[in-house]
Design a binder for these strands. Structure first.
Lengths: 207, 207, 207, 207
DNA sequence: CATGAATGAGGATTCATTCAT
DNA sequence: CATGAATGAATCCTCATTCAT
């Protein structure tokens, strides 16, 4: 039997709860997951969940917020990694970090990318905005990496490329799931290469 | 006043109902849309909806099934268009057909690609399977188009490419919505080009 | 066993439901009465109650509205009774009608006067406004009846008198409950007399 | 910042808590006010409240009990005021005391008269009984004051008069709130006068 | 066929109350 | 003593689904 840890300090319980919620929401739809279920996964009772996160919407938003923070932080750290060898492609490092995160935190990615995007929900506003941060991050990354090589990339083009990159990445997540011999690195390679090739195509003069 | 259409032949009524359901499901996710709402959009009463489609799950599945049929049919027709000029790229034609469909039937695409993907639902099995048919179609298309130029493309590679193509396409749908000056043709161009460039990258010997 | 009347036409059920709600709300507080309880009293299920009245607040408001309408109507009819003998005091007739109503509809009065007045509830705004209509009615009645005898009564005085009359009346309701030998007529006599005496006291020159 | 008062003698703490509870219960009805809210107003935590007052019902009852004690004491003191000039009407003094109390302790009166009256609550028995003590007090007062002038007033008549007096008084409370130029004294005058006039009416031979 | 009427089942939310520190 | 932490038990409300007309 799992020994229930009672009387936990606030921030520990809170983390525990969000962990549980991420797991739950990755398994099913916002509406399919009941608060009761989340409480069970967390090993607590419904009122406790409400006490800490306020409402179902609050639970969901908290998940998206926290996971997004983690993801963005991970990517940034990799991109700006001071220990990286000179001449190493930061775009590639960012992609690698991204894929590693996604593979190591599949549930997080599902919640972030698939669940947060549903329109017509009360929480749509906030979560969609947060979801878009990955794309923004990508766009900035791409802009930064390309500015030297091809002259300034139009912001709009960076946006489009970023979206393609993220979408592709998401497709790769499923792929990774079904093909265990693929690694985050391979995937990162593909996307990076794809992005560069796309860049070359859009800026033929640049080569 | 709403002119009630009584006594219509079964398949006509059924089509009307599915039309309504697609519209409704494109507005919100499975759980957000109530059967009552669907009945309202269709201009009938709930029992009628049940009479024709059996259950909410039945309604949803019927939507996905029908829209998928239409989409696949549209792509196939374009690819095998006997009126196409010789030397014209069938992959490009397929993409064009795809994007045109998506732009002209935004609701259908939303239901097909966004709503049908939710896991953890009773209907997940069937709709996911159907959703995958677009990818299959794409994979076949890619295989067919490339077999001549690069030698047989490994099925697995085709699969991966197809997924990337579809994901990218979906990203482009949002892009199209936000950038009205883009056209399905441009988008199709991008994806085709992307795919080819990816192909070249994977088969360096082919160039 | 009570044969449940199923499939009742809309307006019949609605009346039935409000009847039940009045009974229930007269027995306890807004919060003490559960919707389930109301449904039981009405011989239906909760969803039906919601279907017809929308929400608990809606149920309560509907009760107050309907009962207030009935009460005001009853008083007005008595005051303007064309069959009343000449020289008969309309104020007295109004009071009589009021007390008769209250005695015959004790539950209604409880809901109207005691339950509708609770401040700090979401419904407070509307119900308080309705509750005040009895006082308004009284004030008008008093003004009308006295205008001839004492010269115009200041609106403010009429207001105050009306409030006293209604308060007193409410006290009499309890009294009536505990003293079955008192009749609405006696009570009406007391209040009328009280009002007149108060009037005389406030307008000593008027006699 | 809230200065936490620790280690106060029991009865001081208790008084503080009841003060807070009266304030809270005057703002909303029994069910609308949460124990948490009371604790907040008192500047403590829920368990402390429970420690001192036992249960929500206990809190409420304690409020009613204490406030009733205070009110009755106030009236009695005024009625039996040894410093009162000879010939001064004790009934009037009592009324004056009553109104002054009510105006100075509006929250108390609200709790006492409006909140304690709800039937169908577990505590209804006790609080209603206490609430009735005001009326009893009034009845005794009236009996005492009239015994000399009109011969013994039947207890029943005294009861009825007392109720009218209290109801009227309550009506005047609202009136006072809305008409700041009225004073407790004026109000007391009205009620006294009203009572006397009622008495005269009931005992025509007495004049 | 078509529909107005009705409900079983389930989910979000709140709150009085109790421990363990 | 005092309190942060935790929950059992209700309560409001909604919705897919079924009859009877």
């Amino acid at each position: 039997m799992k020994t229930k840890q009672r009387r936990l300090p606030r921030h520990v319980r809170e983390r525990q709860l969000i962990d549980a919620a991420v797991t739950a929401f990755s398994r099913g739809d916002y509406h399919t997951v009941s608060v009761e279920e989340i409480a069970e996964v967390a090993g607590t009772s419904k009122p406790t969940v409400y006490h800490y996160l306020g409402s179902k919407e609050g639970i969901f938003t908290a998940c998206v917020r926290r996971e997004m923070e983690r993801l963005v932080e991970t990517i940034r750290a990799a991109v700006h990694d001071p220990a990286a060898p000179l001449g190493d492609d930061p775009l590639h490092r960012g992609m690698q970090a991204f894929f590693t995160f996604v593979v190591d935190n599949r549930e997080s990615w599902t919640v972030l990318y698939r669940r947060a995007a549903v329109q017509g929900e009360p929480f749509a506003g906030e979560t969609t905005r947060m979801r878009d941060r990955v794309t923004e991050e990508m766009a900035e990354l791409i802009t930064a990496c390309t500015s030297g090589d091809f002259g300034a990339l139009a912001p709009r083009d960076a946006q489009l490329l970023a979206r393609v990159a993220v979408s592709t990445a998401d497709a790769f997540v499923d792929w990774l799931l079904e093909n265990p011999d693929e690694t985050p690195d391979t995937m990162a390679g593909h996307v990076t290469e794809l992005t560069w090739s796309h860049l070359r195509a859009r800026r033929p003069a640049g080569v």
